[in-house]
Design a binder for these strands. Structure first.
Lengths: 106, 106
DNA sequence: TATATTTGCAACTGATTGGTTTCCTATAGT
DNA sequence: ACTATAGGAAACCAATCAGTTGCAAATATA
């Protein structure tokens, strides 16, 4: 199945689900009520999210509560870190280079 | 076409390309040399990255240099911000909520 | 001017994706 | 025990995707 987090958050519905259950654990039916989708579609998304450990389940009787594995989200943050360095320190250096090139042409 | 950044970074090859050109603009051929792919495959990835404005081109004679639009990467960071709040301040509060629910049912 | 190089673009192919439908199991409530 | 509800799993379908192949346009070089 080879799922990774980046593929998991590629789908807008899945991102919405993540946001939805970030603060409060929810059942598949409750989640589906928030979208224009069927429970089964949500269920499939939840399986993908669970497979890459972005989401964890917690059975409670016949209901299953899904909640966000916030720690896993840090992996995206970790990947972003390398670029954060660039956009923080070398802010508009690229634009400067372009401006310089433009000037030289004239 | 409806491309967004999250879909763009879903592909591992595209993430590698992004990392590669983050520090230095490169031509498609030069980028392809760094992978086990053909130039055309890289070219398609670059088109997708360009479409969602994650990458910008700069023609120089018959060569086209591709470089990262670092500003656009911030959009991912912006989306992550909401969760950063959670993993920084309310560490394992979710488990507490579930534990409380469990207690109330009994 | 003729040839080689760099690149984009379109068409095709096989694999994957999101969604629906259907069926099954397990629990809750009567 | 019976019915209703919650949910997962498999089969299927249309759409999309990544990669390849082939070709055309533009630039460089001889």
């Amino acid at each position: 199945m080879r799922r990774d987090i980046f593929q998991a958050i590629a789908d807008p519905t899945r991102r919405a689900i993540i946001t939805l259950i970030a603060l409060q654990a929810m059942t598949p039916n409750a989640i589906a009520d928030n979208f224009n989708t069927t429970r089964q579609a949500v269920s499939k998304h939840l399986r993908i999210l669970t497979e890459c450990e972005l989401v964890k389940q917690q059975q409670q009787g016949r209901e299953i509560y899904y909640s966000l594995e916030v720690e896993k989200m840090k992996e995206i943050d970790k990947w972003l870190a390398q670029f954060r360095k660039i956009w923080e320190t070398r802010f508009n250096q690229l634009d400067n280079v372009l401006a310089t090139l433009k000037k030289q042409k004239r």
